[in-house]
Simulated assay, not measured.
Amino acid sequence: MKNKYVPTALGLYINYIVHGMGVLIIMQNKDALASQWNTNIEGVSGVVAMLGIGRLVAILISGWLSDKFGRKPFVYLGMVIYALFFVGILFSPSVPVAMAFGVIAGIANSCLDSGTYPALMESFPKTAGTASVLIKAAVQIGQFALPFIIAFLGSSGLWFGWSFVVCLVLLCINALFLLKLPFPDADNKAAEKEGVEVEAAPVTKFKSKPKMHIEGVAFVIYGFISQATFYLISQYIAVYGQEVASMSENAAKLLVSYYSTGSLVCVGVTAVVAAKIRPVNLVLPYTLASFLAIAAMWLFPTPAVLTIGAVLVGFFAAGGVMQLGLTVMGEMFPAGKGTITGIFYTFGSIASFAIPVVSGKIANSNPHGIMLLDTVIAGIGFILAVIIFIRYRQTIDTSK
């Protein structure tokens, strides 16, 4: 039978197309915004860092509240707050004001995550990994499209702010689309009151109980590492290409689209494969491959290597490995889905704050050092993936 939540899922994915644009929109308009705020790239990076602060402030509490009050209210709250961000950044007169709206964007992202990830897991309980990975596809569609929108505006002599207006219009249209659509948690509560059986996710069978101080710690640090790895590429690959590999400005900006293309291809592959094999079997090879690709871009910063590397990092680091990590954590620590999402993404939020602060200083004085930093981070990520894989095999019954 057709799943009645497919239209709901479509609306949820559209929100993440907008989110994908929102993640990049400040750095992609860095010159215009730096001029508007009377600052430099370090100041613009500081505004981007505030997204991580807002996310960190809200993600744990929003996850818990989503379990308590429902998914749909938090999806709408995220959409409304994101709309405030796009308007606020566009008309911010200074860095401090823009930072305040950066915090608002982080809160919006937390609300969307806390409502969306659980809603998708509940809508498609037997293919939760695939449903979660498709969020990454939506993000990459947004990140793929935005550089072309900005390039068109620049070549046509149009106001840079139209890129913000596009995001705002998409949010408004999607809010109307989702308004009457059902969400599974509300339907399940109603069904339980009427004594109707609802579809449940497969029950995880354990050989031994997972230990929070081993794999639990590994997961939350992995949340930090995976966010940091692809954040640095998405935000700085254009700067790195232009200043280190001596690419033209337009050619360097297109590296972001190559990165997004790799991510989109990976999402398509992963969405199919993750429905047939355990997600943990993808986390390890993906993390290793992303480490090798980033190391190559650091060691051999030529246009050809950066072009190939951007595609590979998009595929292996940004193609859904973070979402797969969350799915594996949900297997090992079955609990409230909103709460689990909050715990995992808390450290991703720390990365969203800490990494822009550090990378902004490095980019100002030594752009080549950006890729060295990402190489080190990706190497740590591979070590954590090994720990997670080994502990998963030791604790989860994989006989079926």
Rank of each mutant, 00 (worst) to 15 (best):
S263K: 05
A131K: 01
M371F: 15
I14S: 02
L65V: 11
I362M: 00
F85S: 11
Y13S: 11
G106L: 13
L372E: 05
V321I: 15
Q235L: 14
N281V: 12
K193V: 10
M21G: 05
V358T: 06
P96A: 06
L90G: 12
I59V: 15
I214P: 00
V386S: 00
T127S: 12
L33D: 09
K207Q: 04
F74S: 09
D31M: 07
K68L: 15
G336K: 11
P182M: 12
A318L: 14
H19N: 04
V97T: 03
H19Q: 03
E331P: 04
G309K: 05
H213P: 02
L153C: 02
V273R: 04
Y240G: 06
I141R: 05
N15C: 13
G52P: 08
G43R: 10
A200P: 05
L372R: 01
M322A: 08
A128L: 02
A275P: 02
N109I: 14
D185K: 15
N3A: 11
I362A: 02
D113W: 14
L299G: 08
S123N: 03
A200M: 11
A238S: 14
A238W: 03
A310E: 10
L90D: 02
Y392N: 13
I26S: 06
K4R: 11
S352H: 10
N366M: 01
P147E: 08
I355A: 10
A191P: 04
M322N: 10
A363N: 13
T346Y: 02
I14F: 05
G360M: 03
I104W: 03
L181E: 12
G54W: 08
Y231K: 11
Q140I: 01
V97P: 01
F164C: 06
M50F: 05
V280S: 11
P356E: 07
P334T: 06
V311P: 01
L254M: 12
A128R: 12
I53G: 13
S290V: 00
G379W: 03
L232S: 09
Y240C: 04
P73W: 10
L134C: 08
E122Y: 04
I135E: 03
G161F: 13
A137E: 11
R391N: 11
A296R: 00
L120T: 03
V169S: 09
G342W: 13
N364Y: 07
A9L: 11
A100S: 09
I173L: 15
I277W: 05
F382V: 00
Q143H: 07
Y259H: 14
F291G: 01
K207I: 13
V256I: 15
Y236W: 13
Q227H: 10
K4V: 11
S208A: 10
A191I: 08
G325M: 02
K207H: 06
S226V: 12
V272T: 09
N109C: 15
V133T: 12
M322R: 03
T341F: 08
G309F: 12
L51N: 14
A310K: 12
S226G: 10
N29A: 08
C167A: 15
V305S: 03
